[in-house]
Amino acid sequence: MLDLVEVYRENIASWLPEMGMACLGTLKLTFVSFLLAIAVGLLVALLRISTHRTIRGVALTYIEVARGMPALVILYIVYFVPPQVAPGVKWLAFSSFTAAVIGLAIHGGAILAEIFRSGIEALHRGQREAALSLGMTPTKAMAYIILPQATRIVLPPVANYAIGLLKDTAVCSLIAAPELMLRAKDLASSSFQPMAVFLLAAALYFVMSYPLALGARYLEMRLNYSR
C-alpha cells in the first residue's frame, strides 16, 4: 500500500491538472442537466395534477417509465438509437455531452416531478380553498399561494437530487461524455495505475459533492426552523 504514496508523489503533478479540468466538465454537465431536469420536472408535475384524464395519464406513464429504468439505459437510447434509426437526420446525432444532458434530464425530470407533486400535495387543501374564496383564479392561487409554499417544502429533496445527479454524471462516461470518470479511465489504462487513479477520482468527486451535502443539510435545518 505504501506504493500508493510513491505513485502519487510521481504523478500527482500531471494527474491533478488533467483530472481537475475534467471536474469542470462534470460540474458543467451537472449544472446544465439540473436546469433542464427542473424545467421538465415542473412541467410534468403540473401536467400530472391536470384535470384532463389523458394529460394526467401521459404524465403518469412518463414518470413511471423514466423512473423505472436505469439512467444508463436512457443514456444509451438517447445516444445510440437516433443515429441508427434515422441516419440522415443530422441534428439527431447528439454529441455525447448533449445526449448526456438529455438523458439525465429525462431521468431527473421524472424524479423531480414526483418531488414537486408531493410538495404541492403536502399543502393543506384549505390553502387553495382560502385563495379561491378570496376570488383568485386557480392560476393566481398557484402563483401566489401554493407554489411559494411548495418551493420551501421541496428544497431539501431537490438538493439531495442535485447531489445524486453529480454522482450520476459518472455514468455518462459510458457514452463518452466529457467528464471526470472518462478522463480517469483513460488515465488509469495509460498509466497502469488503476488503484491510484480511481481513488483520486473518487476523492475529487467527494470534494465536489461534500459542499453540496453540507449545503443541503443546512437548508433542511433552516427551513424546518422557520416553518
Binding site: 500500500m1 506504493d3 447531489i163 454522482k167 450520476d168 454524471t169 459518472a170 455514468v171 462516461s173 470518470m181 480517469a184 479511465k185 488509469a188 495505475q193 488503476p194 488503484m195 491510484a196 480511481f198 481513488l199 477520482a201 473518487a202 468527486y205 467527494f206 459533492s209 461534500y210 451535502a213
Partner: peptide, 23 residues
C-alpha cells in the same frame, strides 16, 4: 458513510474491480 455517499457507485466499482488486482 460520508465518503461512500459522496462518491459515485461507479467509481467505487472501479476501485474494487480494477484497483484491487493492482494491489
Amino acid at each position: 458513510i460520508e465518503l461512500l455517499r459522496g462518491t459515485p457507485a461507479l467509481a467505487q466499482l472501479f476501485v474494487i474491480y480494477f484497483g484491487l488486482p493492482d494491489v
